[in-house]
Amino acid sequence: MMKDSFSSFHPIINFGYFAAMLLFGMFLMHPVLQVIALLCALTYSILLNGRKAVKFNLLYMLPLFVVMAVMNPVFNHAGVTILFYLKNGNPMTLESILYGVSAACMFVTILLWFSCYNAVMTSDKFIYLFGKIMPALSLIFSMVLRFVPRYKEQIRRISLAQRSIGRDITQGNMLVRARNGLTILSIMTTWALENAIETADSMKSRGYGLPGRTSFSLYRFDSRDRLVGGALLALIAIMVIGEVSGRNAMRFFPSIKMAMTTPFSIIVFAAYLLLGMLPVIIHVVEALKWKSISSKT
């Protein structure tokens, strides 16, 4: 599978895109917009994660959707259209059922966007973005990301070493295992602390703490980023205007009321679809370009 093209854009574009989609996903309740968001998130997650995403969506997202949709009407009894009464005497209303479906849709959409976010916004992009605003903390993040795999490897080695003197964490009762696990953690802690002092030396030795530290990154904001950034801003602006002018409004309680569909709302819907599909569109365009280049040679 071809590498996702959207991931190769500047981190600020990646981050801005996901921030916008998550915010819109949380705020917009108009059913058309919700369906668009769900569709876009679903498509992109499959594009990014392939078969794994399909499996994940069917196995976890679908049941989650159902559970959430059912959970709401059990606890929420607002709404005027009463369908029937539950055993405990509480009414089941159409509004709360639809509201449950809508909420479930939103939640699944958010989770899907996060799964895309996790694939695109790798740690180094995040660290780069926050490196300028919070240099010390982003350095801590980077250090923790360096230490964790190292510590896990140490834990593995220590547990082997412990096993080879007969202290096995995979055998014995719970208490024995937990105790041996603690011994491993304790050895690891001493090791980590003692070795970290040398790491601090290495930082100081390379001038950490001198005033005027800069933050370097491999990312460059090029014309491609400007183009997509501009498109992103324009589409977001349309969405905001739509929200302010009430085109996206949706009310569930006490009775369902949706904003009327006008030509402008069609524009807003189209803008949202375009926005949601932006990474997919970019991916397809790049793939086509590549095809035409490779067919020429």
Partner: peptide
């Protein structure tokens, strides 16, 4: 920085 990073990494 190191102390915070080490302790957080141990926790993780």
């Amino acid at each position: 920085l190191i102390v915070i990073a080490v302790l957080a990494a141990i926790a993780v």
